[in-house]
Design a protein around this nucleic acid. Structure first.
Lengths: 110, 110
DNA sequence: CCGTTAATTAACATTTGCGTTAAAAAAGGA
DNA sequence: TCCTTTTTTAACGCAAATGTTAATTAACGG
């Protein structure tokens, strides 16, 4: 898996996406706080946090028995960068998009 | 699954990501063309295309026995929009390439 | 030292995802 | 009609993901 597909994989689960969203909106939160606000068990949350951390989407900080997690801005920037790389494709009006498609008629088969 | 997590899931596989990337760069392409340029079998590609289509990441057009696929700009806009929603979080320091490299702890960029 | 709290790891069951080959469906041409 | 081409669907095997409960590790406080 490339770095970007790994990032997408980390965000492809609703529970993990919600965790990341909380961390972005509210800043650093402990594993316990995150687990308490979710339906599923603490061990499940712990593993989701691990997946996110290993994908580089969040960071971890230890303080005593607590583990504080925070969203990693670099992951957001990487996704943003990818969309910007293809901005010419999706930006602008529908008319403009139709023009782009018409100008690049790879329609024929080979 | 929400709309966005479904989009991320569709893009979380390297084969599917590469298919979308081709369609963005080169415009509409047939299933056969896409399958011919990939290592795995045509049925496998067909199913990947189905996953992408059902997630709204690509569109399909029939012409005779051919099926032409194209990237859906709306999906790209949705991802871009999500990153922009959280721009205040990550837009602080536009960093260099080494921070992006540090995102992948194993360095398996391929 | 002992008991409590915070978090993770272990073990397990179940589901989902992804690849293969074989078969089927649909359009086109001789 | 029969054969070929294009693409998808079917059937199957196997690996990975996700949830649970139980056990373990580590820090804190009396």
């Amino acid at each position: 898996m490339t770095r970007l597909t790994r990032t997408f994989a980390a965000l492809s689960d609703d529970t993990r996406f919600a965790l990341v969203d909380k961390l972005i909106r509210r800043g650093e939160l402990s594993a316990g706080t995150l687990a308490a606000e979710t339906e599923i068990s603490a061990p499940a949350i712990s593993r989701h946090l691990r997946v996110l951390r290993e994908a580089g989407v969040i960071t971890q900080r230890a303080q005593g028995t607590h583990r504080y997690y925070a969203a990693n801005a670099d992951a957001l920037r990487a996704i943003h960068g990818w969309t910007m790389d293809h901005r010419a494709f999706w930006s602008g009006s529908l008319d403009r998009l139709d023009t782009l498609i018409a100008l690049d008629p790879e329609g024929d088969d080979r």
